[in-house]
Structure formats: C-alpha cells, structure tokens
Design a protein around this nucleic acid. Structure first.
Lengths: 193, 193
DNA sequence: GCTTATACTTAGCAAATGGCAAGAAATGAG
DNA sequence: CTCATTTCTTGCCATTTGCTAAGTATAAGC
C-alpha cells in the first residue's frame, strides 16, 4: 500500500509540491480493520484520524429514546474520525464501525499536534481540511432543510453508490432522517424512473 | 464598548490567562451595523469574522427553486461569518443581514492569518473555535434527523428566545425546515402547554 | 442442510406536513 | 392618519411519512 492517494488528497485540499505533501503525510501509518470491527466507541477519546484507502465505514450514535442514528458514511478517499472528540479531547458520543474490510492511513493526535505547530503548510492544510468537513455537513444540513427524502436518497446513490451494497436499508434510512418503511417505498418509486 | 465579553469568549474556547487572551483579541475592531444592513452578500468573499456584542443577525441563501432558506441565526456572544468563504477565500453563497441594530468586534482575514501563524495559542483557539461551530452544526443536523419540528421549535425558543421577537415567522420556519403554515400551527399547539 | 435471526417489502390506518387561499392583524411609507 | 404591504392565522384537502404488523427473502450460525 503506497501513499499516492493520501498525497493527492493533501494536494487537493491545499495545492503544494509533491515533496512538501510527502513531508506532511510522513507520520501517517497504515491500519487494517476487519468487517464489523470498531474504529471508535462511545465514551472513548478519538485519538486517530483515518484516511480511508479501501472500504466503507459507518458512524452512529443513540438518540434519547435509544434509537440507532447513522451520523455518516465514510468511503474511499474520505477521512473518518470524530472531529469533536479528536480536537477537543473529550469522550466521543459515537461509534465508527467498518461495514467492509478496510485499509486506512492514520495519524495520531500527538503527531498531528507536532506537525500543526511546526509546519506552516500542515496547519493550513489541517484547518482547510476541517473547513471542508464543515462544508460537507453544511451541504447536508441544507439538503435536510429544503429537499425531499426522495431527493436526498437520489443524492446519496449518485455520490456513494457503494453504500447501497454494503449498508442495510435501516441504516441508510436513519442517515436520511426517515424510517426504513418510508425508504422502502421511496426506493420502489425510484425504480420506476 | 470594551472587550470583556470577547475576552471571556476566547477564554471559554481555550482556557488561558487574561493577559494572553488580551493579546489574542488585540486586532479586533468594533463595528456598528444598522438594522437590515448586510454584513455579507452572495458573491463576495467573506473577509471579516464578527463576534456579536449586541443584536441579532440572520444568514440565508436561495435554493434551486429560488426560495429563501435561513441557514442560521446569530445573537449575542456568537460569531457570525461564512466559514467556508472566509477560510477558503471563495465567493460566499449566502447573505448575512442584521435583524436589529448590532454592535460587533471583528477581525480581518489578514490579521487572523498573521496571528494564526505567529501565536501558538491563537491557532489552538482558532481551530477549537471552528470545531465548536462544527459541533453546533452537527447537533442541529442530529436534531433534523430524529426530532420532530415541534421539538426543534422548542429547542430554538429555549436557547434563543430573542429570535422570536425579531425574526418573522417565515424565516424561523425555513430555519426549522418546515413551512410557515406548519410553524403557525405548531406554535398554536405550543401555547396550550 | 437446517434453523434462526436479520433484512426487506407491503398493507392499512393515523399523524404530520404541504399547498393554496382567504381574512385578520401588524407594520411601514408617505 | 391613511394606505399599502407584510405578517400571521386558519380551513380545506392532498401528500408524505410514521406506526404496527404480517409475510417473504436473504444471510449467518451450527
């Protein structure tokens, strides 16, 4: 496993020479996670930020009534971690679980901190990276505000078709903010088109 | 107008001595914004991050059908800016407008950058500040996923009662992701309790 | 291969929400 | 103050979504 995708990811967030990008990803180590294994569990402080080379993950939490709510799906070339727990050093409220066998590149909080304070490009990259995640969340928020569940479902299968193969319908439903019954009906309508 | 609230805000994000906090907020300048005036307009690059000392603001954007969608309300001791535009230096997709006369403390992108790269505490503060905004958005996202419109309305009036006095119902409705008709009915039910 | 658990679909009914429109109330401009 | 505009409420009906439950299909464990 080489770091080409990781380097491309870094250069995509902040354009820079390949040599500089290689320096920024120097501390990243590889990890294999088996299907169903947990990358993070509720109550633990998230201490690693993972860049997914291969595979799919799901993060989820429980609401006040004890229902499982999918907070995100992570796939190839995406970063998986609980930003709040990672940066604020507080116990996480969510679980991150591998839906398929996964391979990732990860950096620990300590290594990230060292880079952040000693390499100017790293801190620009790091900040923009967080901002990008903020942007993704904001986009999803907007889609919750004015799109129908059917449109959101369409968005999801367009951007992440692999998720449909690997996540059960009920988890996709909670991600979209609807019940599995509704999603089953929506999917049925969708087939006709 | 003194910087006490701003300094408290900084210390709340990242505990530090008052002397150090004073250094971090040195570059912030004050600004008065009249009711209905715009802090930011679509197409412009957001170049200032404002900490609200007094007043209320609303940010909004237009969806594909041209409907006005409220993306956020900002009140006292909250920061108002378009993070994506501010940090990525790209044109904003939203408007930020004062709902009442406002007074703010603001810092420009250039001053923020200088502090970010020269003062270690400032960059820790800056990053945590973004993370906190991410957390607020995530919380709101979760409430969209599993709370009813009525519960979300309750959350809003508990956390920001002043908004009700200053924002028209239709703007609160788009913030909650429902129509003004629905919100009027929800509010009616709410009164009974 | 058999059994059990999980996943998915479907149906019937209830509840929530939207779209449209009319009218009352509040606000703003001159 | 008056008029015009905006805001808010309400009613009617259609649509969407939720809830419960039953039945089928698929997958997992032994």
């Amino acid at each position: 496993m080489n770091k080409d995708h990781l380097i491309q990811f870094v250069q995509n967030v902040l354009p820079m020479s390949t040599g500089k990008a290689e320096q920024l990803v120097e501390k990243f180590k590889e990890r294999k996670i088996a299907r169903n294994e947990y990358l993070l569990k509720e109550g633990a402080v998230c201490n690693e930020s993972h860049f997914i080379e291969e595979g799919i993950m799901r993060s989820y939490t429980y609401d006040l009534e004890g229902n499982d709510v999918t907070t995100a799906f992570y796939s190839k070339k995406i970063q998986a971690s609980d930003l709040l727990s990672f940066f604020k050093r507080i116990p996480s409220k969510e679980y991150i679980q591998a839906l398929t066998d996964c391979e990732t590149w990860y950096i620990t909080y300590e290594d990230m901190q060292t880079n952040f304070h000693t390499i100017p490009e790293f801190r620009e990259f790091g900040r923009l990276n967080i901002i990008n995640q903020f942007g993704i969340l904001k986009q999803r928020m907007l889609s919750m505000l004015h799109e129908t569940a059917e449109q959101r479902y369409g968005d999801l299968i367009n951007s992440n078709p692999e998720i449909l193969q690997n996540a059960p319908l009920k988890h996709i439903a909670t991600y979209l903010g609807i019940t599995d019954t509704s999603l089953s009906r929506i999917r049925k309508e969708f087939m006709k088109k």
